[in-house]
């Protein structure tokens, strides 16, 4: 099983438009419903953000280890797991946002894709492609531009992430 750690380092994709972090990125923008019949996770990466204006090339340019930074209500809309799995397929390490759609957050945790919620995230706090570090245990995002405090990962969510996913967690219980 993959080893999990609470501290992750990587390159930051700042999703912004007109100087503001993009909010309300819904599951159709992350993974369009035209590709819902795909069941093989490794084939999902190519569609990531395929319907998010300005980021259509994300799937081609993302590198394993990258992290994504967005505004509020990331992943609202449908319950599709594809919207999480497409990032896993690309090796995206974590998604950071002001807040998440409830279903999206669950899907991510169950698949051991860490999500970090930072309600106080300012629009221009971090630069595109800057190298950052997140600590899921304390909920901090840190980089050359500064540091900001979000919600620590705790309880069942942290246990599931550390186990590598929901089923892995249940097997170890």
């Amino acid at each position: 099983m993959e080893k999990r750690t609470l501290v992750l380092k990587g390159r930051l994709w700042v999703l912004s438009r007109d100087g503001e972090l993009i909010s309300d990125i819904d599951t159709d923008m992350i993974y369009h419903n035209a590709h819902l019949a795909v069941t093989d996770v490794s084939k999902m990466g190519q569609y990531a953000f395929g319907n998010l204006k300005g980021y259509e090339e994300f799937a081609k340019q993302a590198r394993p280890g990258d992290m994504v930074l967005a505004g509020a209500n990331f992943g609202s809309g449908s319950s599709r797991q594809h919207a999480v799995d497409c990032f896993k397929a690309l090796g995206v390490q974590a998604v950071i946002a002001r807040s998440f759609g409830a279903i999206y957050k669950r899907n991510a945790i169950n698949s051991a894709l860490p999500v970090l919620e930072i309600p106080a995230l300012a629009d221009k706090a971090f630069a595109h492609f800057e190298q950052v570090e997140i600590d899921l245990g304390t909920g901090t995002l840190r980089g050359p531009s500064g540091s900001v405090q979000g919600k620590p990962m705790s309880g069942v969510a942290r246990d599931i992430y550390m186990a590598g996913g929901l089923f892995e967690f249940a097997r170890g219980e």
Partner: peptide, 18 residues
């Protein structure tokens, strides 16, 4: 509640969710 397929598969197997 609508949930993703991992959650739902888990509920099929165990009868519960978190």
């Amino acid at each position: 509640q609508g949930m993703g397929d991992v959650d739902i598969a888990f509920s099929f197997v165990s009868g519960r969710v978190w």
